[in-house]
Nucleic acid binder design. Structure first.
Lengths: 303, 303
DNA sequence: TTTTCATGTTTGTCCTGGACAAAATGCTTT
DNA sequence: AAAGCATTTTGTCCAGGACAAACATGAAAA
């Protein structure tokens, strides 16, 4: 039995599910940039190779970081890797980096309990805010790098997400329920399914003593607006991961700003907004999560 | 400001996200059955009305229950409602039904803590297995009915799922870790994102004293097989909700059976399998969740 | 220097109408 | 009942065209 036999044929729908790139986009890329150029089966239908999927995954990552399709689609695998390395960059102190790497190692050995205990130890030592900004954020980056390189399996990635969620959720619930202003509602738009981003912001706000409520992910705009009005919230906080369809993010936010009562503020952040310049009334775009405590403080003095 | 202005235009991609029906399918239904026949905007692109979405949601539900498109697509809203009522049927004792309705009422008032406490009370009183089969299963059905009728918002539905998960997960962890055979691995295929189904089965197996591990949802077949082999599991348990693409479920299972070592059993269940007749070696199709304890017992005597 | 505006280019999504295999159904025979 | 065969139903894929919104670029204004 050779490898080709046990590897199932990747049809265009499978590629869409795995990479998040739509069928129409895949076809039009093939027409315009000559990549990906899949084999065809007996019926003339596209069959993608594992190599092409790998390349597409990296391309997706680079597009999320703001590169343009015409620049990255013609590149081969080594060139893509190189470009990715240049864009990840050295972000944090070497000591922190070492701690993060040891946590990743635990993860790769499937030691879920030890991973959670280690995270908890750091949490207790650093406090919630520092834990998020100095530990979780860099680990997320490292996990992302491993993921792109195919050195992490899907179950391992799930295990990581789940343990981090456990730790942060527990920390949020252990806090004395903040009843002081502002009242903040946390959620994401229907096309955003990543919950870690908004959970981290919620943790930062809880630590800052705000009254926080989470609606969960993938909530229709009308439902968000209704809850925010009915619950007399001061702020709606939204997260847009790098994977959010970046073409529509400005339009979506503008539409929501019109729907939501003008006196309720919007705080929006996440990778999809990083290189956008959005100006809307009573709306703050957060460029990095470290700015959250200052934002809460500013709200208290300003409003 | 009238209603049409505040209701955002539903484009075909939005309908796909909301109903789970693919763009191609929507277009071909329009061609063949003359429904849905959306308006067109200035560019000639489809704009679906809220009524059409409602109808499509019910149609999706009926298809999941095994009806055929040619039979249900031509029906109008009242006829669809009627058909749905006929198919939900009276399932449980009136007393149980009353308890379930009171829980739904709590949910609709957003009393999440009381909801969780009520569930926990029933859990303690009935024990884990009876709690799942007599309370959670019927409530799921009722929630589904409310959902279809548009009487439950997305956040309310999320709230329900989250609280039930909390209660079941906690119950699973409180059990003394079962070290007795069989060793069972719980997960779902990449196209299945619903986690409640497999979680309920896991709870039943934990209560039956088996050694249980969960991989989470949306796991590639190759990863499942690798884990099951490496961890020397006896059984892989899979859940296929009614929303699983039913065209492919037989093919997917067959493919997985070939990938997984023959001596590892497969237990599969869920709505998508209800009217299938699948015969595969060392593979059991569960028609209802009540059969799980017997299945575990049977495994112990038989193997 | 930074910001605003006008221009041309890039890019994802939608369109039509055709094709086909796999699944479901109905009918006949063990 | 169960199994085999023919027919209909049905979802997904294809090609190639179209277009607006997002983006880049460079000139003019603050």
């Amino acid at each position: 039995m050779n490898l080709q036999e046990i590897t199932p044929a990747m049809r265009i729908a499978d590629v869409e599910r795995d990479t998040g790139i739509g069928k129409d986009t895949l076809r039009v890329w093939e027409r315009r940039y000559d990549f990906p150029r899949p084999d065809r089966d007996a019926l003339g239908e596209r069959v993608y190779s594992a190599d092409q999927i790998d390349r597409l995954r990296i391309i997706r990552r680079l597009l999320d970081k703001g590169m343009r399709p015409s620049k990255v689609l013609p590149l081969d695998l080594p060139a893509l890797q190189q470009l990715l390395d240049k864009h990840s960059g050295p972000l944090h102190s070497p000591a922190r980096h070492a701690i993060c790497l040891s946590l990743v190692k635990l993860l790769r050995m499937h030691r879920s309990r030890e991973l959670r205990e280690s995270l908890n130890r750091i949490l207790v030592q650093d406090g919630l805010q520092k834990f998020i900004t100095d530990t979780i954020v860099p680990i997320n980056g490292i996990i992302g790098d491993y993921w792109i390189r195919g050195e992490l399996s899907v179950p391992e990635e799930h295990l990581y997400t789940e343990q981090v969620q456990n730790v942060i959720r527990h920390a949020i619930h252990s806090h004395a329920p903040g009843e002081s202003a502002p009242r903040i509602l946390f959620t994401t738009f229907p096309d955003e399914e990543h919950c870690l981003g908004i959970l981290m912001v919620e943790a930062m706000c809880v630590a800052a003593g705000a009254h926080c409520t989470s609606l969960g992910t993938r909530i229709p705009l009308s439902d968000i607006s209704k809850y925010a009005s009915d619950g007399r919230y001061d702020v709606v906080a939204l997260s847009f991961s790098a994977a959010y369809p970046s073409r529509t993010v400005t339009k979506d936010l503008t539409q929501f700003r019109e729907l939501l009562p003008a006196k309720i503020a919007i705080w929006a952040g996440g990778g999809a907004l990083n290189q956008k310049r959005i100006k809307l009334p009573n709306t703050t775009i957060l460029t990095n999560i470290e700015g959250v405590p200052a934002l809460v403080a500013h709200w208290r003095t300003g409003a």
